[in-house]
Design a binder for these strands. Structure first.
Lengths: 202, 202
DNA sequence: AGCGTAAGCAAGTAGGTACTTGCATACGCA
DNA sequence: TGCGTATGCAAGTACCTACTTGCTTACGCT
């Protein structure tokens, strides 16, 4: 059964490059170093293979987490955002195709959706416990969260296409978080942002 | 030569639905109500047709504009953002496919890029002339512009997929602008946002 | 030693793809 | 009336697509 994993992996790579229609069974078989027939014997059909690829992709991998109670918001949020940025960059091509096939293949959309809601929920929960947030309107909190996660997604998807429209890659997380906190009206984040030491959450 | 326009239009619709690979010449011909051969006689090849589609799409249509000098920033920015939101929503499927085909078909990426830079430049120029912006760091202005345009793009692309993650569609522009101004440190925008009367720029 | 299971290989099926060719038809213009 | 140009139609080419079938080889387990 070692082949199953090899095929899944190869299929993910080919799908990331060419999308559903472009990911031909022949290409996947070659990429996996496996006979094309094996592919059908293992997964039944191309559609089933792709479904397996997407579910496997969405379950695997560690998600960055925010602490239960805020201690150092700037630092904690920056680490969190940076972790998500790095994680999403790894699956960017896959995600791009999944999003564009949203109308044609709903299960692809599920994959595109999965990470986002989790991130937003975490942000909400974390932000709600910020002590400095007493007088901020709930609607503004929603807007801030939406804008931060849109910005994260936009950075991941847009930077390779137009790198000049984004902050230097190593400063991005810090800048976004700082702006996020200003939307929320959290004070004392007007100082220059600390240089980020890249950390990933396990 | 009336057929040329009909084919271009049909091709845009089919491409928006199915992407490059899925937009077969047969489908396009049927959608245009034209013989498939006519398509090749008019454009030479499928690739040439698609190139024509994208260039036609990026040149046509009116772009919302910001006034030279700010008078009522909240109102002007909200109208501007709302206009862009509506304009982008019309070409969303086309844009989604163009973005996902970024690696395979560079000219598709050009189309995806074109609107964005214009928007950012306009925002920059407008914002630079805001009188209340004296003590805001230039880097923060960049970040704010990046976040606003990412948010716009995120709203357009993400809302159909996960509508609950975004503000009510008629309030979105106002909320984004309000948050944008808070990032910039522009005061007196903490009041509840005025309900937006939908206006499009010619 | 015998057997089940996973895998490779060669070949084939039925259909789709971009694109071409040859010929018939219609319309506008001189 | 004649002619060029645009279009339709039928057929064909060469290739790719997902998927199947039949047969062979190899490994592991009892």
């Amino acid at each position: 059964m070692i082949n199953r994993a090899r095929i899944l992996d190869a299929a993910a790579r080919v799908y990331a490059k060419h999308g559903f229609r472009g990911a031909t069974t022949r290409l996947i078989a070659i990429e996996a170093g496996v006979n094309e027939v094996t592919l059908f014997r293992t997964f039944g059909s191309k559609a089933a293979l792709m479904h397996a690829v997407l579910t496997a992709q969405s379950t695997q991998g560690s998600t960055p987490i925010l602490p239960e109670t805020p201690v150092d918001p700037v630092k904690e949020l920056t680490t969190f955002v940076d972790g998500i940025l790095h994680k999403l960059r790894e699956v960017r091509p896959l995600l791009a195709h999944a999003m564009s096939e949203f109308d044609e293949r709903p299960d692809a959309a599920d994959f595109a959706r999965c990470g986002r809601t989790a991130t937003q929920q975490q942000l909400h929960q974390y932000v709600r416990r910020l002590p400095a947030l007493a007088h901020t309107e709930p609607a503004d909190v929603d807007t801030a969260v939406t804008m931060l996660s849109s910005t994260i997604m936009g950075d991941v998807m847009g930077r390779p296409m137009m790198p000049d429209s984004y902050p230097p890659i190593e400063e991005a997380a810090g800048r976004y978080v700082r702006a996020f906190l200003r939307i929320l009206g959290v004070p004392a984040v007007t100082a220059a942002p600390a240089r980020l030491s890249r950390t990933r959450t396990a």
